[in-house]
Amino acid sequence: MVTVDAARRAVATVADPELPVVTIDDLGILRDVSIVDGSVVVTVTPTYSGCPAMDVIRHEIADRLADLGVSDVEVRTELVPPWTSAAITSAGRAKLDAAGIAPPGQVASGPVPVRLAVRCPRCGSLDTEELSRYSSTACTALWRCRSCAEPFDRVKEH
């Protein structure tokens, strides 16, 4: 029988299908791995309600566990507490940045939300602008760098 640690290590390598440079663990959507009555129970949470990657993620989790000889797998989806972009690990943020995707800033809070300048993940300039609140995935916005003129995706604060 597989150990919880081994199962967790295997599941944690599943890449996000839409942002394949980060794993589901990096994104903070892998909530828990446990063994209940001999079956491996993996709990995940969606970034957005309509995240189309969830079905693929469930299949990938089952595949990784099958590689360890585990066939009795249950993938649970948990909505509470809701995912926020603050759940992305620092390793995840570094990987996004290295891949040209700007990581999210702090979620605005307090009476006066302060929005910090967004750094271009390609050239490092702070002279950037938002082109559209929506981009290639539900969790990113489309930005452009005024210095190097390159467009880039940015994971939204959420």
């Binding site: 957005y48 309600s49 309509g50 489309l142």
Partner: peptide
């Protein structure tokens, strides 16, 4: 892209 993403949310 924006309208498709809003549709995806709903």
């Amino acid at each position: 892209v924006a309208l498709a993403n809003i549709a995806l949310d709903t």
